[in-house]
């Protein structure tokens, strides 16, 4: 009886077009429980536009500085329908936070949210939208915390990022 060759090359079969039809196909459940936070007015507009997407678990928020001139990193969160939200509640059971900015006005808040996410081991991504670099401070504030910073002139990148992440 002849022995098998040293390399039986199962991988060669597995990589063929005809073998591809034997891949196990089961529906992929959304894996991410995402929160999307818009740091400034234009970012909030983008968040409103993309919030109508086919999202399973993603929730969208706006973020404003506290009006009573508290510490610079104090801020208020709102759902898109205007209902206030608490940071702790928002981050509970979340595994990815996408922070969107279009200018520098939210730089301090970006750092505070990023820090809160880091402390909770929540993956953070930053999407900075704009042609020029109107959001340098926001980028710098996010840099220590955001696993990824996507600097783009194309608003649809935010949508595509969320879709690719299956949120």
């Amino acid at each position: 009886m002849s022995s098998l060759p040293m390399y039986a090359s199962e991988s060669a079969k597995a990589a063929s077009a005809s073998e591809s039809r034997y891949r196990i196909t089961v529906p992929i459940a959304p894996a991410r429980n995402a929160r999307v936070i818009a740091l400034d007015t234009r970012a909030a507009s983008v968040a409103r536009r993309i919030s109508d997407g086919p999202w399973a678990n993603a929730r969208f928020y706006t973020c404003e500085a506290a009006p009573d001139r508290g510490p610079a990193d104090e801020f208020l969160l709102y759902r898109l329908d205007g209902v206030p939200a608490a940071l702790d509640d928002m981050l509970r059971d979340t595994d990815v936070v996408v922070i969107m900015a279009t200018d520098d006005s939210g730089g301090t808040r970006a750092a505070a949210i990023g820090s809160a996410c880091s402390a909770r081991a929540i993956t953070t991504a930053g999407v900075v939208l704009g042609d020029g670099f109107e959001a340098d401070d926001a980028v710098a504030a996010l840099r220590p915390h955001a696993r990824v910073l996507l600097l783009s002139a194309d608003e649809s990148d935010a949508f595509e990022l969320l879709r690719a992440l299956r949120v």
Binding site: A14, A15, R147, D154
Partner: peptide, 30 residues
């Protein structure tokens, strides 16, 4: 090459689970 070819002749990207670190790929496709 070994890993890329192991995905099959044309990988079925409807089944991927990308993560934020894949943003370069997401952006390039876009």
């Amino acid at each position: 090459a070994s890993l890329q070819e192991s995905m099959g002749p044309i990988v079925d990207r409807t089944k991927e689970r990308l993560v934020p670190a894949d943003s370069g790929i997401i952006k390039a496709r876009q």
